[in-house]
Design a protein around this nucleic acid. Structure first.
Lengths: 336, 336
DNA sequence: CTGTTAGCGCTTTCAT
DNA sequence: ATGAAAGCGCTAACAG
């Protein structure tokens, strides 16, 4: 077993309580006593038992992160930043992906809660069913929603402006002269996807030329998305451009286009989402909407930390950041 | 606050101890009592307090994962599998990247230990300095090393056979007719990298033709690797092929080659490491060594679970798996 | 089969 | 400024 605070107190010749006060820096301790305690702790190699601290004080200095899927570069990068900054603030990051499964999300959140997590950063699978999150939040554990926002339940959120994202992308395509545009998205149930489809539609409606949007629902796996996309492209009046609504859909579109034997951008223009270290090296380099992952992640940490210290705003915050269009070579004017 | 076992016991009309026995399924409880307890627990929505359980029983049903860097696809994928399988076994995955920094690795491991982690899966930053891991291991917490192995300290490991990996890659290049081959690797301090350089060298020495190896040390960042590679390629007798020793080096080589204005594979052949969903779509599709991430991760879980239940082998296990060569279009015979 | 009892290591009143 | 003592929620002897 390891050194306990009792042994430190013994070695320093003070009571357990004084040792605790010195080590956790609260209450009042005489400088002399403090020094002896700190010295004894260092000599014995004392390390506080976080579990005991948590049981007594009600929080474990652990922040939980529940991304939709850690394989997605957006979330991997977010995990990096969260862990980095939270660690510096004295927390450890505990994470588990929901894999976009609500049942699983619930059980993960419960597992985190029962381990006395100090706060939760989550990309909620459903924008509708969030009672488990609300309950946690109302019990006093700060919850910050990232990448997606929740229906009006008083939970802070920070995400990209999804409608704006696809509006920008669609306008880019329209300005190039495209009039038949497909949008490949995963599911109507995921809020951000629905918003992106809506944004595209709005852009098309605002345009001076009369364009049409072909929404293609790709489902939750790469395979299903490829299949859906390929069959949609085989219909009459094939779109001359496609907007892939997230990174998985981007891959699906690329694979689908290859399977169809189409050339980019001669036969079809492609706008993807989410930059990645390899996208500039693709054939051709991919035009895409780049999400401000760093700003979103840092913002989530700031929100979390301010809620944790109680120094934050009273009211719920919903931050929306803008994605930026990165034009490379996968988009061009449609050939006639 | 949430429901405690005391309240469940009260509602069921039994003692706390009986309730605990029924809920955690140990000792003996009469069927009638068990049923009443379970019913009461369900009605009250009782959820055990894992922190209290951990404090009392000494382990928190948490497994820690400390990858070198979660941004690397290899580790992101491993995290996915670990979380998935461990969760099914009743554990939660807690993770934090060391970012290949030993000091940081130590503090993370300590943070995990003080939170009573049940087991540790780690990609050790250093193969030399592992006292913190040995100490944890000797204190009874199973430690499994993944992707890299440790100097002989009795810790289980599961990784790819690094020498074999680069031998296969180099032999592929030799069989194509290359005689001047560069290997771009990060650092001599990382065991796996050193082994890969050695494997390449061995392949060249075994070959019937007299080839030469140009080792290029890229350092720990993408930028430094690109710089090192570009300047090495500007010397006399430029190599006709390059083996990038890991995924970051693969990107570095690709960016470097583009900066130099070289064509692949006409001017230079490239073998990368680590498959990724985008590599088949690169220009040209990348020939690479694919590491068996799934097998490594699953193997790590199996080892961990067997150590946890004490059902594993007595002796230390060092598992090495083979990488497989995936030939695509970035390698060809050198042009004369 | 079941209840009583004693802590796990720590924080936190409450006295002094 | 400090010590004594209680107890967070749970498990695990030990009696009965």
């Amino acid at each position: 077993m390891s050194i306990t605070i009792r042994e430190v107190a013994g070695a320093a010749g003070v009571s357990q309580a004084t040792a605790a006060r010195a080590l956790s820096d609260y209450g009042s301790v005489s400088p002399a006593a403090r020094e002896r305690v700190l010295k004894a702790a260092a000599e014995l190699g004392y390390e506080p038992n976080r579990i005991a601290q948590a049981l007594r004080s009600g929080a474990a200095k652990v922040i939980s992160f529940v991304p939709g899927n850690i394989d997605v570069p957006f979330f991997a990068r977010a995990a990096h930043i969260l862990a980095d900054r939270l660690e510096r603030a004295g927390f450890v990051l505990m994470m588990a992906s929901s894999y976009e499964n609500l049942e699983r999300e619930r059980s993960i959140v419960e597992a985190m809660r029962s381990r006395m997590t100090s706060g939760l950063v989550i990309a909620p699978t459903s924008s509708q069913d969030s009672v488990h999150l609300v309950r946690l939040h109302e019990a006093g554990t700060p919850v910050v929603s990232i990448d997606r926002s929740l229906a009006d339940v008083g939970i802070d959120s920070i995400s990209v402006d999804n409608a704006d994202l696809s509006m920008q992308a669609t306008q880019h395509l329209i300005s190039l002269g495209h009039e038949r545009i497909a949008i490949l998205y995963d599911s109507d149930d995921i809020d951000s996807s629905a918003q992106r489809v809506a944004g595209s539609r709005a852009a098309l409606e605002d345009a001076t030329v009369r364009g049409s949007l072909l929404p293609v629902r790709g489902g939750m796996t790469l395979e299903s998305a490829i299949t859906a996309f390929v069959s949609a492209m085989q219909g009459p009046d094939r779109p001359t451009a496609v907007l892939a609504a997230d990174s998985m859909m981007t891959e699906a579109a690329l694979y689908g286009i290859r399977a169809l034997g189409l050339r980019i951008p001669e036969d079809i223009s492609v706008v993807g989402v989410d930059d990645h270290s390899l996208t500039p090296l693709l054939d051709p380099p991919l035009t895409l909407m780049s999400q401000p992952v760093d700003a979103i992640s840092n913002g989530a940490v700031d929100l979390m930390l301010s809620r944790l210290t109680g120094s934050g705003p009273i009211s719920t915050r919903h931050v929306q950041l803008r994605a930026t269009l990165v034009v490379r070579s996968s988009t061009a004017a449609p050939s006639l």
